[in-house]
C-alpha cells in the first residue's frame, strides 16, 4: 500500500509543497469521506441497537421472515467481489491492464448481481407482507403473527430498521457499481490506467471494501442474531 502511494505521488505534479500525509488527494479525500460514511452507518446501526434493546417485547427469531440462505450466498458474492477488486488492483500494480480489466469487470458483475438479488429479496418480502411499516394486513406473515410465531409488538420496528439499513447499504453498492462502470468505460477500456497511474482503481477499491465491511456487520446483526 505504502509502496503504491509513493509511486503514484511522485507521478503527480505538482507535488504538495508542504509535506501533507504523503497520500495523494483523491485517496485522502476518500478516506475522509469514508469517515463520514462510518458516522452515517453508525447512526443507523446505533438506532437499530437502541430500538432492539428497548423494544416492547421479543424480537422476531432469525430465519422466519428473512431467507438466510440466499442472503448468505449474496454475502459470499460480495466478499468475492472484494477479492476480485484486490486482484484488479494487484494486476495494475504489476502493469497488466488486461488482467486488471478482467478483474474489474468481474467486480462490477459481482456487485450488480448482489443488487439484483437484493431487489429480488425485497420483492419477495413485500409479496409475503413484510413492509417498512411492519406486517401488511391479510398477508402470509400476518397469519404467522396471528398464530404467535412472530411477535406483533416489534414487527413495526423490525420492518423499519431492516428496510432502512439494508436499503441504504444497497444504495451504496449501487453507487459503487455505477462508479466502477464509469471508470471501466472511461479509464480502464481506453487504457488510461498504467503501472504508474492507477489512483482511480485504488480509490474506488477503498470504497468497495468499506461497503463490503458494512455488509458483513449488517448481515450479522440483522439476519443472524
Amino acid at each position: 500500500m505504502t509502496h503504491a502511494a509513493a509511486t503514484v505521488d511522485q507521478m503527480r505534479p505538482p507535488y504538495p509543497a508542504e509535506r501533507g500525509l504523503d497520500v495523494y488527494n483523491t485517496k485522502l479525500g476518500m478516506w475522509v469521506f469514508l469517515a463520514s460514511e462510518v458516522m452515517f452507518f453508525a447512526a443507523l446501526i446505533g438506532t437499530y441497537i437502541i430500538l432492539r434493546f428497548g423494544a416492547p417485547g421479543e424480537w422476531a427469531k432469525p430465519g422466519i421472515v428473512l431467507n438466510i440462505k440466499i442472503t448468505a450466498f449474496n454475502t459470499f458474492l460480495l466478499i468475492c467481489s472484494s477479492v476480485s477488486m484486490v486482484k484488479a488492483y494487484a494486476a495494475i500494480q504489476d502493469g497488466d491492464p488486461k488482467k486488471m480489466r478482467f478483474w474489474l469487470l468481474l467486480t462490477i458483475l459481482g456487485g450488480a448481481t448482489f443488487v439484483g438479488i437484493q431487489v429480488y429479496e425485497y420483492i419477495h418480502l413485500i409479496e409475503h407482507g413484510f413492509v417498512p411499516s411492519g406486517v401488511r394486513e391479510g398477508s402470509e406473515l400476518a397469519e404467522l403473527v396471528a398464530k404467535g410465531q412472530l411477535p406483533a409488538a416489534t414487527m413495526g420496528l423490525y420492518g423499519s430498521t431492516f428496510f432502512t439499513m439494508t436499503g441504504f447499504h444497497g444504495f451504496h453498492v449501487t453507487c459503487g457499481v455505477i462508479s466502477m462502470t464509469y471508470l471501466y468505460l472511461t479509464k480502464a477500456l481506453p487504457g488510461k490506467y498504467t503501472k504508474q497511474s492507477y489512483g482511480g482503481i485504488e480509490t474506488v477499491g477503498l470504497y468497495w471494501h468499506f461497503v463490503d465491511l458494512v455488509w458483513i456487520i449488517l448481515f450479522t446483526i440483522v439476519y443472524l442474531i
Binding site: 430500538l51 423494544a55 417498512p132 409488538a153 420492518g159 423499519s160
Partner: peptide, 19 residues
C-alpha cells in the same frame, strides 16, 4: 429516518409502535 416515519410509515420515533 424522520422522513421515512413521515412518508413510508416506519416507526423509529413512534412510541405507539415501539419506537
Amino acid at each position: 429516518m424522520l422522513l421515512f416515519d413521515q412518508i413510508i410509515g416506519t416507526h423509529f420515533f413512534d412510541p405507539a409502535a415501539g419506537g
